[in-house]
Design a binder for these strands. Structure first.
Lengths: 142, 142
DNA sequence: CAGTATCCAGAGGGATACTG
DNA sequence: CAGTATCCCTCTGGATACTG
């Protein structure tokens, strides 16, 4: 260990900017708030962050560099969201310069199964989808 | 059968409004266009439509009524997207009044597996997530 | 019935600059 | 290093009205 690690997963010192609260417009046609969870998974970065944490904890900038295309703003928001949902933990090492590790919780790890299944489906069927799109588009505007 | 069914899955008579093309901002940090597929699954309605079609084909208004909360605009866009990606077929019965059935393609059915796995995960862990959120929020603004 | 067209509000998300 | 704060713009998606 490097120093005293502060394990919290809750709050440390940062007052939250706003946390948009996701504004679920209440469409209880289905079961419960499945859409709530789907919104997490479906957003642009959450899944990639989870996948980046699958093997080992990572530091903020390590995540930022490995994801490529994400802004620090979005990485922060995504990590906050995942932390709030209990999917990742945030561990602060009070060193200089400061170091913060993010890691998957058991809940976060349990999400890997379904997500990876979806990822495999995506990879396997991506050619078919691309072909379907080209066919569809081609017949519309030749 | 009611009349002559026109099976196309491509185009019938409607010129597409625009089809936003999703604007994928090219972040090839991961594998291929997994995010493309994730965007389909992650949007607000696609998954629910797929689930509604899991057992049998459905007509436009049947879908609209059963999903509860979706606007005809969004239902149209969602169905167009799914059709374009080769996940659903659009079958027009030239009767009066017109009748249009939507059904899952084999590709669409193959998506059910991963999606339902995710749905199960969501239902099983929704209590944990809600609890985590309350804990997180509670410690921020008491 | 099954759409299409138009308008519009708000959330998502990128770029940049600043801070402890 | 690890954020926070602002600005701003695009895309999503809801409401409404009209059509074959």
């Amino acid at each position: 260990m490097t120093g005293a690690s502060v394990q919290e997963g809750k709050n440390s010192s940062h007052s939250q900017p706003d946390l948009p609260a996701q504004s679920l417009p209440a469409h209880p046609g289905e079961c419960g708030g499945i859409s709530e969870v789907l919104a997490r998974v479906g957003d642009k970065w959450s899944v990639l962050v989870v996948m980046m944490l699958r093997d080992e904890p990572r530091r903020f900038n390590a995540l930022k560099r490995s994801i490529d295309g994400i802004s620090q703003h979005m990485l922060t928001l995504t990590l906050r969201g995942l932390e709030r949902d209990g999917l990742v933990t945030r561990t602060v090492f009070p060193t200089t310069p400061p170091r913060v590790d993010y890691a998957l919780t058991p809940l976060g790890h349990s999400l890997r199964g379904p997500v990876e299944a979806l990822g495999r489906w995506a990879m396997e069927n991506q050619p078919a989808i691309r072909a379907a799109r080209q066919a569809y588009d081609g017949h519309l505007e030749p």
